[in-house]
């Protein structure tokens, strides 16, 4: 086989391989769109984070505005410390409420942000003061059964 034809075929092969990788990155992965370039990091402490995981989305009004970057445990207050990166395009007031929510009944958990009304905005490295823990389904069911048992007429 001649040299130029060989080069042509190998070039063709490399282009196809790179194209496949590009397809994986843009169409299958989340490189396009939801990847944030400029971010600022904020922290929030929760009593219970349920099944929240690192890289879970942070949403406000249903729009993804950031991602959870780290989850730790604060031994001084025995609470979970959730660190998350927010896109710099989105600024939130300082009295924003951070809640752990579930998408769907059994879907993955995400961090929801409900903006407050304060004029001053959250800055990088600050801590969100008002938080609401995850709803633990087992606790809810336990509570419900306890209430039902208390309601039942004694006989």
């Amino acid at each position: 086989m001649s040299r130029t034809k060989l080069d042509l075929w190998v070039g063709f092969f490399v282009v196809i391989g790179m194209g496949a990788l590009l397809f994986l990155a843009l169409k299958v992965g989340n490189l396009g769109g939801s990847n944030f370039t400029d971010t600022y990091v904020v922290m929030a402490r929760f009593d219970n984070i349920g099944g929240l995981k690192v890289r879970a989305p942070v949403k406000s009004a249903g729009v993804v505005v950031g991602r959870v970057t780290n989850i730790g445990f604060d031994t001084s207050g025995y609470r979970a410390e959730v660190t998350f990166a927010l896109d710099t395009r989105y600024q939130f007031p300082r009295d924003t409420i951070a809640t752990i929510l579930t998408s769907g009944l059994l879907g993955e958990q995400y961090l929801g942000l409900d903006p407050g009304g304060e004029a001053e905005m959250l800055k990088g490295g600050e801590v969100v003061q008002i938080t609401q823990s995850a709803v633990v389904l087992e606790k809810l069911i336990g509570q419900f059964m306890f209430d039902k048992a208390a309601e039942a007429p004694a006989n």
Binding site: F13, I16, G17, M18, A20, L21, F23, L24, K27
Partner: peptide, 15 residues
Amino acid sequence: ISMPLLAALFSAMGV
């Protein structure tokens, strides 16, 4: 060199 390209192609075709 060719193995990662082939694996990427395999995954893309699989998807």
